[in-house]
């Protein structure tokens, strides 16, 4: 199976073993197998595979694992730099669309710049 690795040593993922109670939630939610259980504590084993989705930190009951979550998307970075709403970059896993809504602030322009 193809395994993709993005840039080396860039992600903001951190784990404080002191706080970890070994519940294993972070391992469950991680889509890239970044973490593994070791002696009752979670450990980062594939750091460069992390995409900073934030699922692990969101689901950690003790805030032992932390990450600056965001969508790794060039259009979002550009939009943020231009002062537009960067967060409305949609990750295009499948093309989707806001129907109705309409009133959502800058989503229109940001969306077209993104997908």
């Amino acid at each position: 199976m193809e395994r993709f690795v993005y840039l080396k040593d860039v992600v903001t993922l951190a784990l404080d073993p002191e706080k970890c109670i070994g519940c294993g939630m972070c391992l469950v939610v991680c889509p890239h197998g970044v973490l593994r259980m070791n002696n009752g504590h979670a450990r980062i084993v594939n750091r460069d595979l992390c995409m900073e989705c934030g699922a692990c930190s969101r689901n950690c009951p003790t805030e032992a694992v932390t990450v600056e979550a965001g969508v790794g998307c060039a259009a979002a970075v550009i939009n943020t730099a231009l002062g537009r709403d960067g967060s409305s970059c949609c990750c295009v896993i499948e093309p989707d669309k806001d129907s109705g809504g309409g009133g959502l602030k800058t989503s229109q322009s940001a969306r077209s710049g993104c997908c």
Binding site: F4, Y6, L7, M51, C73, V92
Partner: peptide, 20 residues
């Protein structure tokens, strides 16, 4: 290609910022 990071399933925001 750089814009394709938005559609990929493994690029991190920190990485994209660094690349850009």
């Amino acid at each position: 290609a750089m814009n394709f990071t938005g559609a990929s399933t493994y690029t991190s925001l920190s990485g994209v910022r660094k690349e850009m």
